[in-house]
């Protein structure tokens, strides 16, 4: 309470901000400098838009995952869910093409219908977690298998392809730009801003934080814990739908191989961004940076010869472990300062 402790508190606080918000950003800047010094082509406009576009899928899903993880849950089913939604969307579009021909409407109907499986799958994950009281890890491990095998079943073990008429109309959603920024990046920006506002400026975000931090305290504080938890899974499902909507026009197909390991990349983006895996602390801005870092690593390995591109996963793995270690480290310094 004395003056000296007051002053000693300041640097400790500054340190915390450094690690939590600037840490991931700093890592991204370092990565960009590294990429540019290894190959100046890294910062070509074409390459930058390429990185941004590719990070959009994982990034959008990861924004949803930030909420699930902040509220103390986890969703392993997002990759399979994306494949499942893509499958449903293509089936719906092909069916409407068959009955009313390819037009902007077939695409809109398909896109609209793709929101239903996303929200529905999210709700199922949330319902099983909260009402049936099964751990989120187990529930989503189960639904992960279910959604993926459903796609395989729909595609009869092969690939579902979008009717070419519809694909031609739909293609621009992935390949076109607005103000020189590709459409998927716009969607990513849009989702990130909404996510940030939701997390930091609404009661919902505060409730997610409270539940992830201590579920009992949340319940005693009149928070409808089950409802908020379920909402995070529904939000996650919605994000997966959005990601799939901009992903399908890229190849116009869906198969059992669609979205494989996306769940891990999304979780990795969230964790690299500074959100705590055990819940209670979420950073949407960090998640966006986390997604960019992951994509940038793959891109740099593609552009340079130093490390084989096949080691992409290994480098990403090292980055994830290092990110979590740094978070711990900052926690330890803070504790020391506090004492």
């Amino acid at each position: 309470m004395s003056v000296s402790t007051h002053e000693a508190a300041k640097p400790a606080k500054g340190l915390r901000i450094d690690f939590k918000t600037l840490g991931p950003l700093l890592a991204l800047v370092l990565l960009v400098v590294l990429g540019y010094s290894l190959n100046p082509a890294f910062l070509n406009e074409g390459n930058v838009t390429n990185i941004l576009t590719r990070s959009a899928f994982i990034g959008i899903i990861a924004v949803g995952a930030t909420f699930v993880i902040t509220a103390g849950g986890i969703d392993l089913s997002v990759g399979s869910m994306a494949a499942f939604i893509a499958g449903v969307m293509i089936i719906v579009m092909n069916w409407t093409v068959g009955s009313m021909g390819a037009s902007i409407w077939t695409v809109l109907i398909g896109v609209g219908c793709s929101l239903i499986p996303g929200v529905g799958a999210g709700f199922i994950n949330g319902f099983l977690t909260t009402k049936a009281k099964i751990e989120a890890f187990i529930v989503t491990l189960g639904t992960m298998g279910i959604y993926r095998s459903l796609v395989t079943y729909f595609a009869d073990g092969g690939t579902l392809s979008l009717a070419s008429g519809a694909h031609d109309i739909y293609r621009p959603v992935y390949y076109d730009s607005f103000l020189r920024i590709p459409i998927p990046v716009w969607v990513f920006i849009f989702v990130a801003i909404i996510g940030w506002v939701l997390m930091n400026r609404t009661a919902f975000g505060r409730y997610c934080m409270a539940i992830g931090s201590n579920e009992h305290v949340a319940r005693y504080s009149a928070i409808k814990v089950d409802r908020v938890r379920t909402a995070t899974f529904v939000l996650q499902g919605l994000c997966v739908s959005l990601a799939t909507i901009i992903y399908v026009p890229r190849s116009g197909s869906a198969s059992a191989a669609t979205g494989v390991l996306w769940e891990l990349e999304a979780i990795a983006a969230v964790i690299i961004g500074g959100t705590m895996l055990k819940g209670g602390f979420g950073r949407v801005g960090g998640t966006v940076i986390g997604a960019l870092i992951l994509t940038a690593i793959g891109n740099i390995l593609n552009l340079t010869e130093i490390i084989s591109n096949y080691l992409n996963g290994a480098v990403q793995g090292v980055i994830i472990v290092a990110a979590v270690y740094l978070q711990r480290g900052s926690l330890r310094t803070r504790r020391k300062k506090a004492e």
Binding site: M209, A210, S213, N214, H216, V217, Y220, G280, F281
Partner: peptide
């Protein structure tokens, strides 16, 4: 139970 039910200790 102020630590377990009443307050969020980490905020």
């Amino acid at each position: 139970d102020r630590k377990g039910r009443g307050l969020l200790l980490n905020v």
